[in-house]
Design a protein around this nucleic acid. Structure first.
Lengths: 200, 200
DNA sequence: GTCTATAAATTGATAGAC
DNA sequence: GTCTATCAATTTATAGAC
């Protein structure tokens, strides 16, 4: 038995539960792309061999499915919040827009991976389908707000929805959580820009 | 990538010059992802065998490099236009924003591929570096327009630039050229939305 | 220019020892 | 739980016949 206080400085050996390995995997997927990442890459990033890695996870597609599930679960939870269901459409739209942006920032790695899914495999197709369902939900909200006269009606609603959430999802291209930039501040600035525009 | 959920684009017929094969390759890259596409996939989409395909092109990375070159060439050509070089910063910014959006739409497949580059290989790193140079160019323009008092100064210029071009680049996620939606109309609507916002 | 055949390396995944 | 060793399939790319 080792004397107390002489434990070797474990550099990167937390418990290898499925959850922490998923976190590692998602980070590598986002860096190199899902298809550009091998199981060898993932194992190396976790500090173990490929075989050991397989002992903890079910495979590459299972990792992708778990990550997409987490992102989609967080997004659909917004739809189920009370504030998303009562009140004027424009108010609900602005609320959902802000919450969606916040979730994209706080769950950044998972949502980033979800948004890059191409639909090559059944796992990806399922994720893509659920994502499109959320897109339809937000598009309907915006169209209703326009019909109410509470948002500019001189833009095609479908185009406006895509551009609006296109701006939001572009955050995944560069945003990294850090003390410098609190997610809520970035989310507020983003929603403000899409609502009021660049002109003074 | 083994499991192919859906069918590939219709096989393209001769002549098999490098340019038309590049067009085919870029289309498949955008559908399945660069890393998710094999040379076998490309050859099948072109309607010839893999070996025949290799007779016309130098390899997978060469195809990617050619596509990125085309996209980057079109983008940097905007910077060299007279209207991008003379006049008030805000006017130049709005001009470059519109032209960039137009090019993204007219050169959609090539720009789409460029924007998805992850930097895994030297070819991709070079493309990424040139793309970042263009990003700096537009960021400087917007910052100057803000400093001139011609654009809202209550937003961080770096954030505003990223969100602005994030909205524009999101067009690659869904826009497909067709008689229904002329590129110029979409580009104008996009620039108008980012400048004036969603509110009436 | 196209093909068949195949090389050489990588990949997702498993077997089985310790 | 981790490892070494390995498999079967795939992938980039080439050789060489016609």
């Amino acid at each position: 038995m080792k004397p107390a206080g002489t434990a070797s400085p474990a550099p990167r050996r937390p418990p290898y539960d499925a959850s922490s390995l998923l976190e590692v995997a998602v980070a590598v997927f986002n860096e190199r792309g899902y298809d550009g990442t091998s199981m060898e890459d993932l194992a190396r990033a976790a500090g173990i061999t490929k075989s050991s890695f397989y002992h903890h996870v079910d495979g590459k597609q299972a990792l992708l499915a778990a990550a997409c599930d987490r992102a989609l679960g967080a997004l659909f939870a917004v739809r189920d919040e009370p504030a998303s269901q009562r009140g004027r459409a424009v108010v609900r739209f602005e609320y959902v827009l802000l919450r969606t942006t916040q979730i994209l920032l706080t769950e950044s790695p998972y949502v980033t991976l979800l948004l890059r899914v191409r639909g090559n495999t059944p796992v990806e197709q399922t994720a893509l389908e659920r994502r499109r369902e959320f897109d339809r939900y937000t598009a309907d909200l915006l169209a209703q707000a326009m019909a109410d006269g509470d948002l500019r009606a001189d833009i095609d609603p479908a185009l406006a929805t895509r551009l609006t959430f296109g701006m939001v999802t572009s955050l995944t291209e560069w945003y990294r959580p850090s003390g410098e930039t609190p997610p809520d501040a970035v989310a507020k600035a983003t929603v403000d820009l899409i609502l009021r525009g660049l002109r003074p």
